[in-house]
Design a protein around this nucleic acid. Sequence first.
DNA 1: ATTTTGCATTTTGCATGCAAAAATGCGGAA
DNA 2: TTCCGCATTTTTGCATGCAAAATGCAAAAT
Lengths: 227, 227
Amino acid sequence: MQPSPPPGFAVPISRKPLHEEAINRLRDLIVRGELAPGERLNERRLCEQLGISRTPLREAIKLLATEGLVELLPNRGAVVAGIDAARLAESLQVMGALEALAGELACRHASDERIAAIRRLHEEMLAMHARGDLAGYFRHNQAIHMSLVEASGNSVLAGAYRQLNANVRRARYMANLSRERWDAAVREHEQILAALEARDVPRLQALLRDHLASKLASVLTGLEKAA
Amino acid sequence: MQPSPPPGFAVPISRKPLHEEAINRLRDLIVRGELAPGERLNERRLCEQLGISRTPLREAIKLLATEGLVELLPNRGAVVAGIDAARLAESLQVMGALEALAGELACRHASDERIAAIRRLHEEMLAMHARGDLAGYFRHNQAIHMSLVEASGNSVLAGAYRQLNANVRRARYMANLSRERWDAAVREHEQILAALEARDVPRLQALLRDHLASKLASVLTGLEKAA
DNA sequence: ATTTTGCATTTTGCATGCAAAAATGCGGAA
DNA sequence: TTCCGCATTTTTGCATGCAAAATGCAAAAT
């Protein structure tokens, strides 16, 4: 860890390479469904849309292919990957294993402060739920899961989880969940938080698994209805 | 799944994009240590070495960055990532979780034939061990672990595992293991195979965890000696 | 002697050019 | 009408050009 520089200078003028920005913008377009599954990624059009040239755009597309958000067709460019229920199930299964490990590590090593921070996110999420703010709920939900994974202290784990997450987030966008499922998810989160605070590894792992399984079921039925 | 074309034609003249070939070649150079940790990846030099131009090379480098094999320094190109013991431990921990899941799924769903194929790989590996062929042993060892993961039937899982594997393979290349550790690893593999054939999930998971923990210890001490 | 500063070279990051492959449109034959 | 073949137009994949940033080095200043 670097010593944080004094505020006001030595904040090095935000040097983000274009291709990174392009990745994030493109991923967002795909996750939010503004680029529909099956749609071809026309380089020229996207270049104009993003205001960059083809080189960084192509680099971005290649990266998103490794995340499974786009599919590369040799000599025919790239298309937005379809949302495949089977693949989604596989992803969530893997994320389940990762979360279980993360939960164990977090129980063993995370500081109380760190867990308290997750609790705060949880409380904010409850507020979103209470006022029916679905988008805000999703954001906080994501933040909580990512925080848990990061609280494991294992950055490789966090990276792997983040990568899988993109696909699932996209599916969630399509399939808006029912009110009952929403309420149930909130209750599950409450239990998860409690187990984490109690540092009860077996219980936390069981809850995380159940939670992901429910999420899978919810997203799948949501997708069916959408289709 | 596509119907496999009749052999002899319709094998379409190897239309591999250059950047894919570049990825594989570069990854190999790094994993085998021919590009040493910390070494800068000079685009011009690598272009000549690989006989391609900078565009596909740059795409390849960006991809390897997501695998953690190279590090991108904005405006200063890329360097071969160092082998960090802590990161290695984190990777193996994650791979442990993935293998445990893979083992469970393989026990539940893999065909007998599939398991028999792994057994055959194992027997070949024993032969390598008997004749002291370390390189051949490594190759078969890798093949066995990958086969197990693929036998899970979860391709997302297999992909995630494969990605993490690159880093570990590189560390193994540096740290040649001791004779005792080699013998022990072979015995562990024998037990793993038996548990898989018996489809004994808890036992298999425990064995896989132990095996990876031993591998970690072995690689770490090997690295220390190398350093 | 050590540090600093200015300049030349190298290298990166991005844009663009060019040839080949794929998509598209159209006229004609079945 | 439908289907096929052929020419045209797009679009991709890769190579290369260009400006900006970084690097190296030697002379000047302390």
